[in-house]
Simulated scan of single mutants.
Amino acid sequence: MTEQQEDERYVLGAFDGLHVVEGEYYCQVCTLLKCASTDLQTCGQAATTAHTQFDSFALSGTFSTNYVFPEVLLSGVQLAPGEFQVLNDGRLISVKRTSQPVLTITLFGRWFESDPPRPYTHSRIH
């Protein structure tokens, strides 16, 4: 981190389980995220702006699926195209200093085989 702000806190997080917001699906997540305030109780709450810059970053995780998707969100909830890459070993790394302060750096693993069964809906064609 460069230009780290005293009033900002970042944490590392991991999740492996059934996600139940806006549907039910199984995912594995490895993330670096900005807390909504310096209070650790606000980590995971929505934050939309940041002021801390990163010269470089690297994030990796161990996933049980091959469906792993990277996401880097910058201040203002902006995507960061061209500012990171995923290496063959699965690490998400920065290509250069981020153009804006960082909100989140995340690897999302989507484990389709572990989703709960969907109710069968039979449709009749007339």
Rank of each mutant, 00 (worst) to 15 (best):
T106P: 00
Y10I: 10
D115M: 05
R124C: 08
F84W: 04
D39Q: 03
E22W: 15
P117S: 10
F63E: 02
T49M: 14
F84V: 03
Q41R: 14
F69R: 05
V77S: 02
A58R: 11
H51V: 06
N88Q: 07
N88F: 03
Q78H: 10
E6R: 10
A46T: 01
C35Y: 10
F112Q: 08
L40H: 03
W111V: 11
L107C: 07
H122F: 11
Y10H: 02
K34C: 04
V68C: 00
Q28Y: 01
Q100H: 14
H51T: 06
P119R: 12
L79N: 01
T38V: 15
Q78G: 04
P70L: 09
P101E: 04
D7M: 09
K96V: 03
R118I: 15
Y67L: 05
R124W: 15
Q85T: 11
Y25V: 14
E83V: 02
F57Y: 09
Y120Q: 15
A36G: 01
L103I: 12
V68I: 15
I125W: 05
W111Q: 02
E8P: 14
T98G: 08
I105Q: 02
Q4F: 01
P117E: 06
V72S: 03
S75P: 07
S114D: 07
T121I: 14
S123W: 15
T49H: 13
A58G: 03
F54K: 07
L74D: 11
T65M: 01
D55T: 10
I93D: 00
Q45G: 05
G82R: 03
T104S: 10
G82V: 09
S64A: 02
S60W: 13
L107H: 08
T65K: 01
A36L: 09
W111L: 08
V20Y: 09
L79Y: 06
Y10E: 02
